[in-house]
Design a protein around this nucleic acid. Structure first.
Lengths: 362, 362
DNA sequence: TATTAGCACTCGAAAGAAATGAGTGCTAAC
DNA sequence: GTTAGCACTCATTTCTTTCGAGTGCTAATA
């Protein structure tokens, strides 16, 4: 059955109201508030149909209506007044963000904390990097039993490791190894570091002490740890602000799921396009623990192949529009600041694309 | 007024019981349970006096008794059955710990997490290092505008920084600087890196580009960041396990205080001697937010001047004895593992010293 | 045909009333 | 000094009652 214009208006009004009050909303309140010129009786009829269609439900016979997950989905996809942030809010957010971004270490923990502060919900940050390679090796001879391996990655971060040996090496060997690694191990991906390559290097360097494999192992370790996605969740306690989590047991269950580093996003789900905001409503989440919560995430691009993701977790009754705007805002700020994004400085608050929605909203 | 032996026994019994049930304990229960050969009426008299003396209180006229902070203090100092861990528990703990310690990065976040898991309370970890020096400098020439500074600290950790310059340098200069820094900047403390020293080095190296100050600045940054105490709190959500935090507002208040990195220990309070366990009961805490919670901390020594501290936060009704044992256990494990401690492997579970208590147990 | 006023009905939440019982303090006997 | 006995207190639990927001349905209206 097709949903009429008026039904849409009513549904939107129900969701808007419910987001604020967290109480079931009744026909009378709607008649007064929403500017649709009809009486409560008419609205009652419409509401009854919306229930039939699965967009709303009633906690019990004599209560008002509450949006279902389907209702929220419809709201998010089509009805929501996107970008509610006023100019002042935008300004304020911009200021705060600018300040924060400057003192930001760009550790995902900081990013997550920032998102949580901004939205007042528990927040997660996630980042992963693809196609990392090493640009340069340096091996520093310390003493006969000790050297330091220093590698510089293609994104100019530098990592090091101190190696103690049970046997002694001389400087010449170290220098030789350094040259060989720079020749053969730079610019390649982790899975291109094969036993074959290691063996041939070992032979070529005339290394009978196994130094080659130590260095190669470190290289692999660095590459894989750099590529591994890391996640961070903060502000779990903000859940307790929400009336739907006044039950300590319920709150505890979700909070420990979050703290436990449980998977929040569908495992298959690759990070979406930059500047896209995704919303997962209630049962759309795969994790059992999230089935009656919603997740909103925005992705950003830190350049050099690093993609990141910031999001919040909250009750299904969240102000999707505001939160999505804020996250999008933050994600674009990060993209811009970390150099990857082509997001224009001016345009920060007018590009908000939400999954499942193909109309651009100004 | 002096406290009689029997009163002590009764007080101990009240605390023991209350720790388990979290309910006010009555005279009858005590008469049956605690093996003191007297009737409930007698106990009632004693209880009344204990209330007068300030060790116990009554929530209301017809309720049982609950320990006051003073009562807990007395319990912790004199009455508590220390070291309740049975042999099996010790074994089990040992196993778990051994396993965990091995995969431990020794980041304070890991230590904190471990403490929280072990005790099922929110936990904090804190560590600070004194008298750090740099053992060795290496400066790697990358290209005319780029070099990498690598420093090795006296505890053999290695830190590095990539420097991009607007001007160009040659390899000879870099080598010269490296030599000079190794001569003048090794083995000294942060506050010994003075403008005078920097100036003279700069002149001696004939450095007109300000490279000296860049390197010196990095050295200072490393030294100060290494010496700065850092803290980490985890497992805040475990607070919700406790009946006294079923009120979401109360829980939220404390949790956000903890997450916010609020000061948990008295600022003046230096880290105590290794293997000492400190207990701060309710109002003994300075932070307003902790006035009706207790904090138990144990300190460890990771050698090389690094002192650490692990602790938990919970309601005043905590099983001080068990928690103190576990923390002490963990602290000693850390000391041992990180090389600083002289704690004997065997002796792990028999050296438990609690602040304010001068008798050694078992 | 769509809308609306009117009304009986439902059912959770709030308020009130009564019952329960754990625990006390006190007194008098041991 | 200890104990049995008993009247009293008061939080907690349970059961009723009241209240009212909100509904669904019907009949009148535009």
């Amino acid at each position: 059955m097709e949903i009429s214009e008026r039904k849409k208006k009513i549904l939107a009004a129900v969701v808007d109201e419910y987001i604020i009050t967290a109480e079931p909303v009744g026909s009378k309140a709607l008649a007064e508030k929403a500017g649709l010129g009809c009486s409560s009786a008419t609205i009652r009829n419409e509401l009854a149909e919306l229930v039939n269609m699965g967009y709303l439900e009633q906690p019990h016979t004599s209560a008002g209506r509450v949006p279902t997950a389907l209702g929220y989905r419809m709201y998010v996809n089509e009805l929501m007044q996107k970008q509610k942030l006023s100019l002042e809010e935008t300004e304020e957010l911009n200021d705060r963000l600018e300040k924060k971004l400057n003192e930001l270490d760009n550790t995902i923990s900081d990013v997550s904390r920032l998102a949580s502060q901004l939205t007042n919900y528990p927040a997660l940050a996630l980042s992963s990097r693809s196609r990392v390679t090493i640009k340069r090796f340096d091996i520093i001879y310390v003493d006969a039993n000790t050297f330091i391996i220093v590698v510089m990655l293609d994104n100019n971060t530098v990592r090091n490791k101190l190696v103690h040996l049970p046997v002694s090496v001389d400087e010449a060997m170290v220098r030789k190894l350094s040259t060989m690694f720079n020749a053969s191990f730079t610019g390649i991906l982790e899975d291109q570091i094969t036993p074959v390559l290691i063996n041939s290097t070992e032979r070529a360097a005339d290394d009978s002490l196994g130094l080659t494999s130590v260095i190669a192992a470190f290289a692999m370790e660095v590459l894989s740890s750099e590529a591994a996605p890391s996640a961070f969740v903060t502000g779990e306690n903000r859940l307790l602000n929400q009336p739907e989590f006044r039950d300590p047991d319920k709150a505890h269950r979700l909070m420990s799921y979050l703290s436990g580093g449980g998977y929040i996003l569908p495992p298959g789900e690759e990070l979406g396009d930059t500047n896209e905001v995704k919303v997962l409503i209630g049962p759309e989440n795969i994790a059992e623990e999230l089935k009656d919560s919603s997740v909103i995430v925005a992705s950003y691009d830190a350049g050099d192949g690093t993609k990141g993701l910031i999001g919040v977790v909250g009750p299904t009754r969240m102000d999707y529009s505001v939160i999505a705007s804020k996250l999008s805002f933050l994600a674009q700020g990060l993209s811009r600041r970390l150099g990857g994004g082509e997001a224009p400085v001016e345009g920060m608050h007018n590009k908000l694309i939400i999954k499942g929605d193909d109309s651009d909203k100004r």
